[in-house]
Design a protein around this nucleic acid. Sequence first.
DNA 1: CGGCATCCACAGTGATACTG
DNA 2: CAGTATCACTGTGGATGCCG
Lengths: 218, 218
Amino acid sequence: MRSYGHYCGLAKALDVVGDRWSLLIIRELLLVDAARYSDLQRGLPGIATNLLATRLRELEAGGVVARHDAPPPIGTTVFRLTARGKALEPAILALGAWAAPLLGECTERDEVRAHWLALPLQSYLIDTQPTHRPSTIEIHTGDGSITMEIANGVVRGRSMPWTGTDPVSDPDLVLSGAPHLIMGLLMRRLSLGAARARGLSARGNTHVLKRLAVRPST
Amino acid sequence: MRSYGHYCGLAKALDVVGDRWSLLIIRELLLVDAARYSDLQRGLPGIATNLLATRLRELEAGGVVARHDAPPPIGTTVFRLTARGKALEPAILALGAWAAPLLGECTERDEVRAHWLALPLQSYLIDTQPTHRPSTIEIHTGDGSITMEIANGVVRGRSMPWTGTDPVSDPDLVLSGAPHLIMGLLMRRLSLGAARARGLSARGNTHVLKRLAVRPST
DNA sequence: CGGCATCCACAGTGATACTG
DNA sequence: CAGTATCACTGTGGATGCCG
């Protein structure tokens, strides 16, 4: 991308991450920590393969992404965020929060990946019962599933594909349905009854939902 | 711009403000509150006029910018941010903060506009003596000047071009020099002596600098 | 298979010129 | 002042091919 050539923080940021797809690649790496090329392709539906290769090179040159040769169990190169790359998380969360009203009622032919939900969930939800033993919620939507772990006052979301050697057997609650129903329920904008009436399925101990609260001030 | 078609907050945000120049137009409107077309051109060096027109139309359609017919003193159309547009401020500040390390030592042929400094200054600085009478600092760099008002615990930056009917006569302190020296001094990363040694000029009551502190937690 | 490179049609961009 | 018109150029998206 052409540099804007402005002595201004925002312009300098966009010089590095302002290209099409760049911030979404970083979102993907924030979520999965380390990803192969093909994992990124699956997490970025619609990206052309040449663009993904080009962007990864540019982000590497920009000090945001690093390339590693993973040991035998994977045996191929994986991509990770550098510390500078991880430092983009607040900006990405702020943009995502701004767009929350745009994630309307019904999903209009949009692609869905379950692990995309992990970022907003773990940043906007807290565990109100830090002293209790950990609870887990399994979420099925779109293509696959993620597991939320509620423990020690915080909420963590993990995607299943290949981060997990432990499939977290026996979750306390299993949710499945359209993503906006799941988000509405977990963010406490929708009651369980309302969400169920609109097609959400919730099996297991629904009391664990009471453990969740929206983070107060951000 | 083509929509990403992802059911994801970040992607939806980029669908609206992810185009080239869009966020910089919003930065400009955050800084000046209301601007004419030609004001925007001056604040966005390098933008092609057709692109500015196109982007303004798209941002209007996206509910971020609104067009108003200003009364006689100006007599032409002005552009403003909507409430939704102003809500982008945290995201823009986060991106700008991330890029702070990229605003290196010396300005390498970058364009500079004095009012670009106002946004980081008023978000990262506080007034440590809220009960004192207001102090003002005039800053000259790049093309023009801005005035910082330090009062009631907060810092406000205002650009001169045409927001002001009151030129704030008699500032307590007048700073002029390269932008990174001014930012370094005000953000307390540079001592007054060091900044002067590198070419900064400071005339007036330099004690008002003691009134400023970097905001604690963000 | 995973990680690209190449090719091509087309949409977006940037510089300049021009207009009501 | 606030754009529109034109046009060369660059970036994007889709398909396919290559190579370890």
